[in-house]
Design a protein around this nucleic acid. Structure first.
Lengths: 247, 247
DNA sequence: GCGAAGAATTGCCGCCATGTCAACAAAAAG
DNA sequence: CTTTTTGTTGACATGGCGGCAATTCTTCGC
């Protein structure tokens, strides 16, 4: 079996850098790999050009922060916190405009994790606490990830209310409708009396990084109001990040 | 600038695999990269031999699960949420035992991000909301990451109170004391009237993944009480995860 | 501020590692 | 069971690669 030596050596350089506590010099890599420093330079330049390493200001190299994310199809904590901070104003604007509460969530395995929220000022309100986790198949934020992001429909779709969609077929059709609509809907599927809409937030590479949504009690959110909220949420987003995946 | 084509192509194969939802066939990689399938075979065999890809039973390839671990300076969201859920009972036990509030935080760039908390039942209490971010150099949770984790001392250490340590020398000495003690201390350095202690939580590989701490108002937390809280926090932790790095 | 030492970059050249092709083997599909 | 598709392997030609040396840049010590 023939292996490619240049590829092996490049990956060895990457492995070496990953094992070091801090950024490394070019000569360190050359010594560690037992190659000429000009070759080490070519290796490192290639890793940088391909996005697997970065070179900092002091001419040192370290593995790219995107390396893990690239491998796991997941974003770094810093990217997630950056989105949370960038979209805070949009959450506040949504609450100001709609009177209902607004949430932001990320995907964690088969669940969504609420990372920010702005409460409604009204006495009757929805409240998903920051730090809470919810399922994908019966929440608007979760359906956003299933429709527009990398989430996979979990093996089981337990019923939370009489309105929960629990068959693969019903959910697949619902996700098709969601994609066509541009925003997802939870119509009292997760909790009785609560209706929500949500839509994706994409990163600069066009991957879905978060979902943003608005929730209200069903006594206030009529059918017409639900779709109005959906359009408002679909149009919201001026946090300096892309709203839609690039063509 | 000359890049190494074999290395580029190998990394392109890795990137392609990372972007696919499931394992890929050899011919998929060959088509995606526009190379002959025998070359794709050599590329993939090399990635497998170097530990960056694995081949499953159906002759398909996917990025190695260790890819992220090999290169990462960060944990996945699932690992973080697993820690949060595993340590919830410990937070509650700490509050029951001490009467003060307890927090859990992760490292995000040059800050800590509060991901869980249990409030003190007393009317005078500390409250860092879940989702809040705080600096490293003047919080107990942050100092835990600086002492026991991968955090680097930021370039600037602004004063938040008259007690904030703001020189590199003073902070380096404080972090040495913290390592010797086994828990970190914030002695009204971040906010007047608030004292905190914290200690690291490690993952199975011995990397620090989170910090857990207890905070109280200084009118209640005397010098002696502060160290007592430190010892309690240092001894806490029965969430099924390691408390200390492996030898 | 300057000179020395160390680190990094760049151009060149020889050669062997690599890419392609074709034949063959194995697995999947009908 | 047969056909098609996918994967493997050996051979060959060549251009991509590795090392060397010169040059440039950065850091360090005085």
């Amino acid at each position: 079996m023939r292996l490619l030596q240049s590829l092996s050596r490049g990956l060895e350089a990457l492995t070496y850098m990953s094992a070091q506590p801090g950024p490394v010099r070019l000569t360190d890599v050359a010594e560690a790999l037992g190659v000429d420093k000009s070759n080490a330079a070519h290796l490192l330049k290639t890793l940088v050009a391909m996005g697997y390493a970065v070179q900092d200001d002091s001419r040192r190299y370290r593995p790219s922060d995107k390396l893990a994310a690239r491998a796991r199809t997941e974003h770094t904590l810093e990217e997630i916190v950056a989105v949370k901070e960038a979209w805070r104003a949009t959450l506040e604007a949504l609450v100001a405009e709609t009177g209902e509460c607004a949430h932001l969530a990320v995907l964690v395995g088969p669940r969504v994790w609420y990372i920010d929220k702005v409460d409604s000022p009204l006495p009757l309100k929805v409240d998903h606490p920051i730090g809470a986790l919810s399922p994908l198949h019966c929440t608007a934020l979760g359906k956003a990830f299933l429709s527009f992001g990398a989430a996979q429909l979990p093996e089981e779709q337990p019923a939370f209310t009489p309105r929960t969609l629990t068959t693969r077929r019903a959910l697949t059709e619902e996700l098709e409708r969601t994609r066509a609509r541009g925003y997802s809907i939870d119509d009292e599927e997760f909790a009785p009396g609560i209706r929500c809409v949500a839509r994706p937030i994409y990163d600069a590479d066009g991957a879905m990084i978060a979902a943003i949504g608005v929730s209200g009690p069903s006594v206030r959110v009529t059918d017409a109001r639900l779709h109005e909220l959906g359009r408002i949420v679909a149009a919201a987003g001026e946090g300096g990040l892309q709203k839609e995946p690039p063509q």
